[in-house]
Design a protein around this nucleic acid. Sequence first.
DNA 1: GTACGATGCGGACCGTGGGTCCGTTTCGTT
DNA 2: AACGAAACGGACCCACGGTCCGCATCGTAC
Lengths: 197, 197
Amino acid sequence: MSERRPRKDAVRNRAAVLAAADRLFARCESPETVTMADIAEAAGVGKGTLFRAFGDRTGLIQALYAERLEPVRNAVEEGPPPLGPAAPPLERVPALLDALLCFKLDNRHLALALEETGSDSPYQAAHYERWHSTLQAVLERIPGLTDSAFTAHALLAATRADLVEHLVGHQHLPREQLRAHLAAFTARILQPSTASD
Amino acid sequence: MSERRPRKDAVRNRAAVLAAADRLFARCESPETVTMADIAEAAGVGKGTLFRAFGDRTGLIQALYAERLEPVRNAVEEGPPPLGPAAPPLERVPALLDALLCFKLDNRHLALALEETGSDSPYQAAHYERWHSTLQAVLERIPGLTDSAFTAHALLAATRADLVEHLVGHQHLPREQLRAHLAAFTARILQPSTASD
DNA sequence: GTACGATGCGGACCGTGGGTCCGTTTCGTT
DNA sequence: AACGAAACGGACCCACGGTCCGCATCGTAC
């Protein structure tokens, strides 16, 4: 069984490609202006190498995204409160959303690239599924909140990369203000329902 | 000055193209599987005609979308309550969102095509700007609701075409249930804030 | 150190699809 | 009927994602 470990040059090239891709996506306005050939050239490798290592464009972007997301994922899954699992739901939900928002703010170019790359929708991406199920599970523990699945989708939708880009990139909404808005929005959702009687 | 009216054949062809495009988008799974050449052929015109009439792919889809949206837009801008301007804000907001959601449910293929077509983001599209400013204006009249601009964005994000497609198309969530979820979500946002003290 | 698979490399090559160009046709006006 | 303007159509162009395969490099066995 067991995988044989990859050759040294393969490892080096893989890293070079990821670094180059990150650099290029960060530099350019729209991710679609960065072609695979550009990335290969910037990394100093051939196109074939790049496709061999990542399969296709989506694979490359996902790999890059996953790498960057890892610390956050870690903090969410086994870190201390308020992000980690031990936090009480009413604190953890805003913390999760804020963490996700901050990540997207810090990696706008990547998040944009990922969301606009999929054949369709970010809803296929494994990352999304993960965030959604985590968030949904936490929401479920909040009394009075029904529809936790939809609520999770709707809250996550408020942090979508293209919206963030629109607000911060095009309309120059300051980062802190966006965070505050999202926090306020979340708080409204979480506040105990005064539903009918 | 004044524009000279277009030739008859141009009008006929334009209509034929719109009809063909609508048919094709409706039939196929993913809008990206429908090529411009396909549309031209289905409409019985040459590719040049198609591009002359609509400029580019985005233009064609926008034109189609606009045509379909028109009745809704009309109802919003000058129709009777609860959709029209005369409705009290607390009723009009859910009505607006429900109308938009229903439109996207009824025109999933189109909405998807539009959102995934833009060079980037639906936030450039004129239609979005319109919905946003309408919704924001209504939200503004609700006491205790700050951040009306962001709130409008966040609520609209909950109706995004790819999310709708994910829920209804892939997960087979029934239409009425999705409407109910969105209504409940909206109600939570609109409910008077018990904010601190 | 050398020999020799296996693994990886690279860039020429291919197919596809959006968009353009221009000789030809159709319109509508005089 | 005739003529200029407007529109047509499909051959053509090119950028880009993805493939292929002869060649280089790695690491292991001796």
